[in-house]
Computed example of a mutant assay.
Amino acid sequence: MRAGTSAGERATFTRSPDLPEVETLTARYVTHRFLPHTHEALVLGVIEGGAEGFRFRGGQVVAPAGSVVVVPPGEVHTGEAAAPQGWAYRVLYLGPDWLAGAGVAPGVGFREASVEDPDLAAHVRLAHAALTRPGASPLARETLLRAALARLVARYADARPRQDIIPVPRAVGEARAFLDAHPEAGVTLTGLAARVGLSPAHLARSFSAVLGVPPHTYQMTARVRLARCLLDGGASPAEAALTAGFADQAHLTRVFKRVVGVPPGAYLRPAPGAAGSFKTGALPAR
């Protein structure tokens, strides 16, 4: 088992090119803790065992076995065990372009981050199983995925745009935009504050209050997003680490796993026996 994983922990990341911007994670974690982070994708998952806890919109959510977890794009959240045995789950990540093509309005919000809905959970499981099974047809994968998404939106979508629920002050928005555009930059808090017209202390307080994380933590997750793009484009983990602003490959590996759920090597590695069209990375159990 790869160093840094605990007994019984395992995680597999999968994508299929016939559904661009659709990714999956299948995992069981015990001691693993996700950093506060965001996704450009809609996160839709079902808890298969144990319980997951995560910070979301200023509160703490506990999702027990059988529940469906929903995190809209851009929402800061964490992830950790909320039961002694940890938690196991299946997760779908649905990118913004794919969602738009499926008829989901940009900025859609959802009323709850964890819902008890056995029918929706069953449809998420079916879609996830099709997406992670090399023998499934593209028609089956998309049909089952759209069926799960349609139930989610019909039952739980919030009519209010997400940006109206959580307003972002101009200065914080500008600071976030700079970190998104230049995640590799060695900017200081003083330098970032000067760019947006605030004192360093005021920016640090406002950024954390609005986005739920301090600027340096947000920058680390933005660097992971850049590293993923570089890896997808053929860069090695060492090259991605250097370009994305990490101290070295080991630093990238530590942070990458705490955001994506698997380290860069597993993110890139094809699974034995997987169809050539699949990109899968797995951590074996001990």
Rank of each mutant, 00 (worst) to 15 (best):
G8T: 01
G8E: 13
R10Q: 08
T14A: 13
E21G: 14
V22D: 09
V22R: 08
L25D: 06
V30T: 15
H37Y: 02
T38R: 15
A51V: 07
F56Y: 15
R57Q: 07
G59D: 09
Q60V: 04
V61H: 03
P64V: 12
G66S: 12
S67N: 00
V69R: 14
G74P: 03
E75D: 14
H77W: 12
A88D: 07
Y93N: 10
G95I: 08
G103P: 08
G103R: 06
V104E: 12
V104C: 08
P106C: 09
F110I: 13
E116M: 07
A121W: 01
A140T: 12
L145V: 12
R146A: 01
A147K: 14
Y156E: 12
A159K: 11
R162F: 04
I165C: 11
A171M: 02
V172Y: 05
E174Y: 03
R176N: 00
L179W: 05
D180Y: 01
A181W: 02
G186C: 03
L189T: 08
G191I: 05
R195L: 13
R205E: 11
V210N: 09
Q219D: 00
T221R: 08
L231P: 11
P237N: 14
A250R: 15
V255D: 02
K257L: 02
K257R: 15
V262S: 07
V262F: 09
P263C: 14
P270N: 09
P270R: 15
P272Q: 15
G273W: 08
A275F: 04
G276H: 08
F278C: 06
